[in-house]
Nucleic acid binder design. Structure first.
Length: 308
DNA sequence: GCCCAGGTGAAGC
DNA sequence: GCTTCACATGGG
C-alpha cells in the first residue's frame, strides 16, 4: 500500500484510555479527544471509534506493523479473560474495565522508565520521563499546531550523560541507577535483544543484575516489553489488592502473595495483574478499604486463602 | 508538617 | 533468613 499518515485497526473491546493510562506506559496524553504519544521515533495520535482504533503519524508510513505490534492488536482478549480463574475479585476487576490491554513496548524504554518509577506516583513518573526526553531525546517531526515531541533517549546517549545532569530531571536517587544501567546496555555487557530468546527466569536474573532493578521492575519489563504473560509484578498497589480482595484481615507477606499469584492466576497472570492494578487504583482503592461483600462463598478464594 | 508513591540495596538482628 | 532504613521529590 502507498505510504500514508493514517490507518485504521479494526478491533473490538479495546479500551484505549484504560490501556494507555494504566501505569504500564508513561508517554501518552489525552489531547483534544485523542491520545498523543511517541512510539519509537514516531509521533503518534490514537483515537477510538466504534470497532476500531484510528492512528495518525506526522510522517507517512509504508507499513503499520510496528504499531499493530505495539498495540497488540491481534491479541484475543476474550480468550485471555476466559482463561482467568473464576473468582469474584477478578470478575469485578474485569467488569470495571473490560478492554484493558497489555502493550508490547521497547525493552530499553520500558526498563529505564521503571527504574525511574520506584516510590514515585504515576503522575510524577510521567513528569520525570518528560524532562528526560526533552533534555536527552531526539526531536521528532510533529504535525502543525502540536507541542514538540522527543524520542526516548538511547542507552548510548544516556551513557554519555552525567549524574548531575540526570538529577536535573528531578529523578533524585534513581539517577545513578539509570546511568549505570545505560552504561551496561550501551557497552553490550547487557544485551537487551538477546533477552528475548531466554526463558522467563533467566531473563529475570539478567535484568536483576542491573543496579536498581529488583524483582518488581524486572517483572514489569518481562511483562510489558518482552511479553511474558505469566510475569506478575508485585508493587504496593498489587499488595493492597491481593490483601483486600483475597486475604482480608490476615497478615500475609509479599513473598507469600507472590507465590499465591504464581499458583492462582495461571498462564495469563500478568494480564490479571494489570486488571487488579487498575481496579484497585480506580474503583476499590481511595477509601483505604471497601472490601466487597463477597466473603467466603467463593470456593476458589477460600481455598487459596488458607496459606500460612 | 505529615504520609505516601507501580522499590531497591545495605545494614541490622 | 527476615525486618528496618535511607534514598529525592512532589502531591494530597
Amino acid at each position: 500500500m502507498p505510504p500514508s499518515c493514517t490507518t485504521r485497526f479494526e478491533v473490538t473491546a479495546y479500551d484505549l484510555a484504560a490501556t494507555l493510562d494504566s501505569g504500564q506506559v508513561f508517554r501518552w496524553r489525552p489531547t483534544a479527544g485523542q491520545w498523543v504519544g511517541v512510539v519509537g521515533a514516531r509521533w503518534v495520535a490514537l483515537a477510538s471509534e466504534p470497532g476500531a482504533i484510528v492512528a495518525r503519524t506526522a510522517v507517512p508510513c509504508a507499513s503499520w506493523d510496528w504499531l499493530a505490534d505495539y498495540l497488540q492488536i491481534q491479541t484475543d482478549l476474550e480468550a485471555v479473560l476466559r482463561a482467568f480463574p473464576d473468582d469474584e475479585p477478578l470478575r469485578r476487576a474485569v467488569a470495571a474495565c473490560r478492554g484493558l490491554r497489555l502493550l508490547r513496548q521497547d525493552p530499553w524504554e520500558c526498563l529505564a522508565s521503571f527504574i525511574l518509577s520506584s516510590t514515585k506516583q504515576i503522575v510524577q513518573i510521567r513528569q520525570i520521563i518528560d524532562r528526560l526526553c526533552q533534555h536527552f531525546g531526539e526531536p521528532l517531526a510533529v504535525p502543525p499546531g502540536h507541542v514538540p515531541a522527543f524520542a526516548f533517549p538511547s542507552p548510548d546517549r544516556l551513557a554519555r550523560a552525567t549524574e548531575a545532569r540526570l538529577r536535573g530531571c528531578k529523578m533524585g536517587f534513581r539517577a545513578p541507577y539509570l546511568l549505570a544501567a545505560a552504561r551496561r546496555v550501551a557497552s553490550g555487557q547487557t544485551d537487551l535483544e538477546a533477552l528475548r530468546r531466554l526463558p522467563l527466569a533467566e531473563g529475570r536474573s539478567r535484568l536483576m543484575e542491573l543496579p536498581g532493578v529488583g524483582r518488581k521492575i524486572a517483572d514489569c519489563v518481562l511483562l510489558f516489553a518482552y511479553g511474558f504473560p505469566e510475569a506478575f509484578p508485585v508493587d504496593v498497589w498489587i499488595l493492597k489488592a491481593l490483601r483486600e480482595l483475597y486475604f482480608p484481615r490476615r497478615r500475609v507477606s509479599p513473598a507469600v502473595l507472590q507465590q499465591f499469584a504464581a499458583a492462582h492466576f495461571g498462564p495469563w497472570a500478568g494480564y490479571a495483574q494489570q486488571y487488579l492494578f487498575h481496579y484497585i487504583r480506580t474503583c476499590a482503592g481511595r477509601t483505604g478499604g471497601t472490601p466487597p461483600a463477597s466473603g467466603p462463598r467463593d470456593s476458589n478464594v477460600t481455598l487459596y486463602a488458607d496459606h500460612p
